[in-house]
Simulated assay, not measured.
Amino acid sequence: MSDGKGPTAERIAASSSSWNGEPLPAYPAGRPLVSLLRILIPPHARLEEHFHPVVNAGVVLRGELTVVAGNGTERTFRPGEGIVEMVGTLHYGENRGDDEVELVMFYAGAEGVPLSVKSEP
C-alpha cells in the first residue's frame, strides 16, 4: 500500500514453474534478448494454438484472458494477475468476454529464437 509519500513496488508474480505447475526450463545459451510486448485481443477472439520456446511472463491490464493447454487444462487471468506462461507446451489464449483484453508480456529469450511458434495444421 502506498502512503502517497513515495514510490511503491508490488510483486505480481514470482515462480520457477508455469501456471500449470510445470517447471520452467533453463535459459538458452548465449546473449539474452529481452522483449516486452503489449498485446490486445478483441472480444470473443481466439489466438492460434502455439508454444513458446522461451520463458515469458506478464500481467493482464484489462479484460479476462483464458489460456487453454493442449490437454484441456485451462485458467482464466483477470486484471492485475500475473501470468507465468508454459514453455514448450501447445496452448492458446482466448478472450471469452465482451471487452478487449490488454496485457503486457516479458520474454527472456535469445537472438535467433522465436518468441512463439504456431502449431502445425
Rank of each mutant, 00 (worst) to 15 (best):
S2R: 02
G6P: 01
R62C: 13
V101H: 04
A13S: 15
G6D: 03
N95M: 03
D98K: 07
R62Q: 15
S17I: 05
N56R: 08
A108K: 07
L36V: 15
L47F: 04
G58N: 02
A110P: 10
V55Y: 07
F51I: 01
P42W: 01
S17E: 13
E85N: 15
I12A: 05
M105W: 08
Y107Q: 02
G93K: 02
H44L: 08
S2M: 01
G72Q: 12
G70S: 13
P28D: 11
L115Y: 10
M86V: 15
L115Q: 12
P43R: 07
E48F: 04
P23R: 08
T89W: 06
Y107C: 03
D3F: 00
E48L: 06
V84E: 09
E111Y: 10
V67Y: 10
L61R: 08
S119G: 09
R75Q: 12
R38L: 04
F77H: 13
A13Q: 13
H50M: 01
L24Y: 12
V117L: 07
D3G: 08
V84S: 11
K118Q: 14
T73R: 12
F106A: 09
I39E: 15
L24I: 13
D3V: 00
V34S: 11
V113G: 07
L33E: 14
D3K: 11
I83Q: 06
L36Q: 12
G21D: 09
A57H: 04
V54A: 05
T8V: 02
R38V: 05
E64D: 15
L103R: 05
G70K: 07
G93N: 10
M86F: 11
E120F: 00
E102Y: 01
P53S: 05
A13E: 13
D3C: 02
P23V: 06
P53Q: 12
G6W: 02
V60C: 05
V101W: 01
V117G: 02
L90K: 05
K118A: 15
A29L: 08
W19M: 08
A69Q: 02
W19V: 07
S119A: 14
F77R: 06
V68S: 00
G63T: 00
S16W: 00
G63F: 01
A13M: 11
F106H: 14
L40M: 04
P121N: 09
N56S: 14
E81N: 14
L33S: 13
H50R: 06
I83V: 15
I41P: 03
G70L: 05
L33Y: 09
V117F: 07
V67K: 01
S17N: 07
V68Y: 02
E94Y: 08
Y92P: 03
D99T: 13
E120D: 06
G97V: 03
S18A: 15
Y107G: 01
D99S: 11
V60L: 05
K5C: 03
H50C: 01
I12L: 15
R31A: 15
E10A: 02
S18K: 04
A13N: 11
D3E: 12
R11M: 06
Y27N: 13
V67H: 04
A45K: 10
D99F: 03
I12C: 05
E49H: 04
G82V: 01
L103P: 03
T8Y: 00
P32W: 03
R96L: 09
M1C: 00
R75G: 00
L103M: 15
V84G: 11
H52T: 04
R75W: 06
E94H: 14
P7W: 00
N56A: 09
